[in-house]
Write a protein that binds this DNA or RNA. Structure first.
Length: 562
RNA sequence: GGACCAGUGGCCUAGUGGAUAUGGCGAUAGCCUCCUAAGCUAUAGGUCGGGGGUUCGAAUCCCCCCUGGUCCGCCA
C-alpha cells in the first residue's frame, strides 16, 4: 500500500495546528470549503476554542494563521470569518495524487491490512419460493458491503444461509405432490416452485381438508419420512440450481453456503444446554431466554414440541461462525422488520459468553415495494428478478445496437446488471418504490452514466499514441483541479464506508466522480490539448482507475466502450 | 399502548453540529464539420413535516406533535 496523500496531509496539518494552539484535548474537525477559491480544507476550530479561551473566534483564527508552521505541501492558511482555510500547493498535490493513483492502479483506495476476520451473511433466500427484486436488493447490498470490508483490509468471508426447511417448504411440497406430482419442468424449475408455493398457500386458506393434508406433509418433513424427503431433495435442488444461476449471472461468489437444514439439530442441542446452564428457562414447555431486564422481552429458542425455530438455528449458526470460522466481526444483511429479533439474538449470544457478540451487526434495509403496495411471495404479486432482468436487458440491447458497437451482447449485459445493482444501492433505511420507467432509465444518476464516463476515458487513452506518466503541470484550471481533488478522496470514502457499513457512500462517490469527469471532458481537450497534455492524459487514466475500483466495490463492471 | 425507521422544490435524492442546502428526473432554452449526445451548458422550482428548545452556529442534537412504514409470534 502506498501513501494516502490527502490523509497524510490532514494528519500533518493536525499536528501543526496542535503545536500552534498548544492545547491538550482538542478535537480538530476538517471540512471542505464550499468553494475551491476559499481553500482545500478548512477547520471551524476557532469557534470551538472561543468558548474555552473566552476570546473572539476571529482573533483566535488570526492568531493561528499567524503562528502556524505549515507542513510541506500546504502553501498558506487564511482566516475567513473565523474559519481557517488551508490552501494546498495544488500543482504538487495534483502531480502526487495522479502519480500515486496510476502506480497503485487496482489497489488504489485499499486500506491497511487488518487482523480481524469478518463474515458477511447475505442473500439467505428460501428454497421453494421465487427470487424477486426484494431479494436482489439484499444480494447487491450484501455483496457491496463484503467487497468494501475486504478492500478496506479485513479478511472477509462471504456467506449465504439458505432457508431450506420450514412451513413454507411443506406448503410447497404439499402443493407439488397434490397437483403436480411427478412433473419436472424443462426449465425454470425454481420459478415453477415459486408458483406452486403461492398456489398452495391460496388453496390452503380455503379448505380445511387441504389443511389436514398439509399438516401431514409438515409432520413427515420434520420426521424425515423417506418419500417426502425424496421430493424435498429433488425440489430443493431445483431452487438451488436457480439461485446459483442468478449468483453466477450477478457475478456474486459466496465462500460458504450454510443451510437451515444443517444447523437445526445442533441448535436444538444448544437450546437444551442453555436450559441446563440456567441461561434459558422453561415456559409452557418451550425454551425461552428472559431478556426483560434488557428491554428485550422473552426470546423463544425452542418450540414446546421440541422442534427448531429460526432462533434455534441462528444460535447454532452463530456458534459455528465464531468457533469453526474464528470470525471477529459478524455482519447480517437482513430486512429491517427483523431488527428486534437481532437485538434479542445478539444479547443471547452475549449471555452465552461469546465475546464476538458485541461485534455482531445487523445491516437492515427497507423493502422494495411496488406502487400498489408490498410484494408477497405468498400472494404471488412479485416482480421476479428474471422478469426485470430480461426487460432491462432488452432495452439495453436496443440502445447499444443504436450506437453501432461491435460486442453488443456483452456490453448490454454489463449495462443491464450495472443499472440493476446501482439502483439497489441507495440508502438502506429508505424504501424503494419500484417502477418500470425508472428501471429502464440509463441517464442521470444511474450506473450506465458512470459506465459511460469510464468508456469515454478508456476511449481517450486508446487514442493517445504515446502515453507517458511523466508530466509537468503548467497552469491548473478549475475543472482539472476539482477532478484531482475528488479522486484523492477514494481511500477515505472506502474507509468510512467500512466503518459505518454504508455501501451507498461508495455509490454516491463514484457518481460524483463520473459527473466531475464529464464536466472536465467537455471543457478540457486531451488529445489536442494546447497545454497540460501529458498531465491531462494521466488525469484521465487516474479517473479511469478510480471509476473502475469504486464500481468494482459495488460489483459493477466498467466497460471499455459502450 | 411501547419501541424503531423515514419525512429535504411536482417526483426521487445528498448532506447527521459548520460557510450561500447536493444532485437527478420532469419542464423550458441552447450545444454534435470538435477525444462516443447513455453527454454538456443555462433558466425556473425550497416554510429541509410542524412547533418549542440547546448552541457563536441546527436539515443534523433535545422535547412535544403530525404523517407514512415496521416490530413487539412457539413465523422467517
Amino acid at each position: 500500500m502506498g501513501t494516502i496523500l490527502l490523509k497524510n496531509l490532514k494528519n500533518e496539518l493536525e499536528n501543526s495546528i496542535r503545536k500552534a494552539v498548544d492545547l491538550e484535548e482538542i478535537v480538530i474537525v476538517f471540512s471542505r470549503p464550499p468553494d475551491f477559491k476559499l481553500g482545500d480544507i478548512a477547520t471551524p476550530l476557532s469557534f470551538e476554542l472561543a468558548k474555552k479561551l473566552k476570546k473572539n473566534p476571529m482573533q483566535i483564527a488570526k492568531d493561528i494563521v499567524d503562528t502556524i508552521i505549515l507542513p510541506e505541501g500546504i502553501e498558506r492558511a487564511e482566516n475567513s470569518g473565523g474559519y481557517i482555510n488551508f490552501f494546498f500547493d495544488r500543482k504538487y498535490f495534483s502531480k502526487k495524487t495522479v502519480m500515486t493513483i496510476i502506480n497503485e492502479n487496482d489497489s488504489y483506495g485499499k486500506g491497511e491490512e487488518k487482523k480481524e476476520k469478518v463474515m458477511v451473511e447475505y442473500s439467505q433466500p428460501n428454497t421453494h419460493k421465487s427470487f424477486h427484486i426484494g431479494h436482489l436488493r439484499n444480494v447487491c447490498l450484501g455483496d457491496a458491503l463484503a467487497n468494501i470490508m475486504e478492500f478496506s483490509g479485513y479478511p472477509t468471508v462471504k456467506a449465504n444461509y439458505i432457508g431450506d426447511v420450514g412451513a413454507h417448504v411443506a406448503k410447497c411440497l404439499w402443493g407439488y405432490m397434490k397437483f403436480y406430482n411427478g412433473v419436472v419442468p424443462e426449465k425454470n424449475r425454481g420459478e415453477f416452485l415459486g408458483k406452486v408455493y403461492s398456489e398452495a398457500d391460496n388453496k390452503l386458506k380455503k379448505s380445511e381438508d387441504y389443511q389436514e393434508e398439509y399438516k401431514v406433509v409438515l409432520k413427515n418433513l420434520y420426521e424425515e419420512d423417506k418419500r417426502t424427503m425424496d421430493v424435498w431433495r429433488m425440489t430443493r435442488e431445483w431452487s438451488l440450481e436457480e439461485f446459483n444461476r442468478i449468483y453466477k449471472e450477478l457475478g456474486v461468489n459466496f465462500d460458504i453456503f450454510f443451510y437451515e437444514s444443517e444447523v437445526k439439530d445442533e441448535g436444538t442441542k444448544i437450546a437444551k444446554e442453555l436450559l441446563d446452564k440456567g441461561v434459558a428457562k422453561n415456559k409452557d414447555g418451550a425454551v425461552i431466554v428472559d431478556l426483560k431486564e434488557y428491554g428485550l422481552d422473552e426470546f423463544v429458542i425452542l418450540r414446546s414440541d421440541g422442534t427448531a425455530l429460526y432462533s434455534t438455528k441462528d444460535l447454532a449458526l452463530a456458534e459455528k461462525k465464531f468457533q469453526d470460522f474464528k470470525i471477529d466481526l459478524s455482519l447480517y444483511v437482513v430486512g429491517s422488520e427483523q431488527k428486534f429479533y437481532f437485538k434479542q439474538l445478539f444479547k443471547t449470544l452475549e449471555l452465552m459468553g461469546f465475546s464476538q457478540a458485541k461485534r455482531c451487526y445487523h445491516l437492515s434495509y427497507e423493502l422494495v415495494m411496488l406502487e400498489e403496495g408490498k410484494m408477497s411471495s405468498r400472494e404471488g404479486n412479485v416482480v421476479l428478478y428474471s422478469e426485470l432482468k430480461d426487460v432491462v436487458k432488452k432495452e439495453a440491447l436496443k440502445q447499444v445496437r443504436e450506437r453501432n458497437i461491435s460486442n453488443a451482447e456483452s456490453i448490454s449485459e454489463i449495462v443491464t446488471l450495472g443499472a440493476l445493482k446501482y439502483s439497489m444501492m441507495k440508502d438502506n433505511n429508505k424504501r424503494i418504490i419500484f417502477n418500470w420507467k425508472k428501471a429502464l432509465d440509463f441517464e442521470g444518476d444511474t450506473a450506465p452514466y458512470i459506465q459511460y464516463a469510464h468508456a469515454r476515458a478508456s476511449s481517450i487513452l486508446k487514442k493517445i499514441a504515446v502515453f507517458t506518466s511523466e508530466f509537468e503541470i503548467d497552469e491548473l484550471n478549475e475543472k482539472e483541479y476539482k477532478l484531482v481533488s475528488l479522486l484523492s478522496e477514494l481511500p477515505e470514502i472506502v474507509e468510512k464506508a467500512s466503518i459505518d457499513y454504508r455501501p451507498d457512500y461508495v455509490s454516491n462517490y463514484v457518481y460524483d466522480v463520473a459527473k466531475c469527469f464529464n464536466e472536465f471532458y467537455h471543457e478540457c481537450h486531451v488529445i489536442n490539448a494546447e497545454s497540460n497534455k501529458e498531465f491531462r492524459a494521466s488525469l484521465v487514466k487516474a479517473t479511469k482507475i478510480v471509476l473502475h475500483n469504486a464500481l468494482a466495490l459495488l460489483g459493477i463492471k466498467a466497460p471499455e466502450e459502450m
